[in-house]
Write a protein that binds this DNA or RNA. Structure first.
Lengths: 192, 192
DNA sequence: GGTAACTCGTACACTGGTGTTCGACAAGAG
DNA sequence: CTCTTGTCGAACACCAGTGTACGAGTTACC
């Protein structure tokens, strides 16, 4: 974008808008630009001066969230027994999902279809790589496509987030539930 | 509802609106009352004459869908090995989910929170009963709450519906994937 | 201190839906 | 055949949000 020389206060405002948007959208996925601007201590016009539309703002917020999230995920030790590695990865991923759930909903109906998946490419590749390794070591099942397993992981986590929001389970219970469920779902089918 | 004496054409129109709404909402969860009225071959005013608000219309459509769906589910044989019974139940449920997915999204943001769950009570009880039986026969795991297992089933199915919509799997593949995943997830943990 | 970049509030146009009102007209029930 | 019930279209008020235009004021930069 050739950010040649933004004035200092402009940069400060952009940052403020970004973090305010993250907060507001996490509280209410349908938060309006007015709310966000107010929360950022900035006029609505200023907001539109930096982000041409609400959609692009949401996109920017989401990009940032993915970036920091993916960085966290990058620090997870994925070596050793794939089952243990997956447990660690789930733990970390779950925290992120739990945290960014509402933001994700916001992105879902503000961004063009496919954009979400595009942005999730890196974290998804991480999971896929681990699953592939587990498959080659015969500790994960190979009778279902890897992409399906990734999808299951994704949906179980988001389902857990819904359960929490509905008050049926607590955030603390969720992680072990998810882990227990997915490890069983991903194990090779019994020889029977 | 004290349907004392509706005139015949009124009843016909109500039915037409209901089925038209089901169609429209299945195509586009955000379908407007104008679209629905037009599809029903009825004036918008007539629609409002029978349903006080869009929300109540969506509710009525949803109630109807649940009723017919639950009837279908009632015909599934749930006796014998719980794993086989679950397979059959998944098969039937999956068809319904696949069919009514968009309608469900419509209900999600037109109905007050909790209403959906309320309407899902019967089909959910059906699943729970089967799971409980399987648990008592030691073919389903007991280390996780039944409600959690129900939630997993729910989310895996809806995840599959998303995958189909995104064109990543086909409707035919979905059922066996779901079954294979859930049977593994619900089995008792290995003694190890 | 001059200048360009930036911000602010108010106001406005536009959009797309919801729900209501009106009066004229059609159709079913008895 | 009449009267009630229902229907129709067009028009309207309303709402909430998005994005734009203007002009005056402020702030950073050199």
């Amino acid at each position: 974008m050739a950010v040649t020389t933004r004035r200092a206060d402009a940069q400060r405002n952009i940052a403020a808008i970004l973090t305010a948007a993250a907060e507001c959208l996490s509280r209410d996925p349908a938060a309006s630009t007015s709310e966000i601007a107010k929360a950022a201590g900035v006029g609505r016009v200023t907001l539109y001066g930096h982000f041409p539309s609400r959609a692009e703002l949401v996109d920017a917020v989401f990009v940032q969230a993915i970036a920091t999230g993916d960085e966290t995920l990058g620090q997870v030790d994925l070596t050793g027994d794939p089952r243990d590695a997956l447990t660690r990865l789930i733990e970390s991923s779950w925290h992120l999902v739990d945290q960014y759930r509402a933001l994700l909903l916001a992105a879902q109906d503000a961004l063009p279809p496919g954009r979400m998946r595009e942005l999730h490419a890196d974290p998804m590749a991480r999971v896929e790589r681990l699953l592939e390794r587990g498959r080659s070591e015969n500790v994960f099942r190979t009778d279902l496509p890897t992409t399906w397993l990734v999808s299951v992981m994704h949906n179980v986590m988001h389902g857990a987030a819904s359960e929490i929001q509905a008050g049926r389970i607590t955030s603390a219970q969720a992680a072990p539930y998810i882990t227990a469920t997915l490890l069983a779902a991903f194990a090779p089918p019994k020889p029977e």
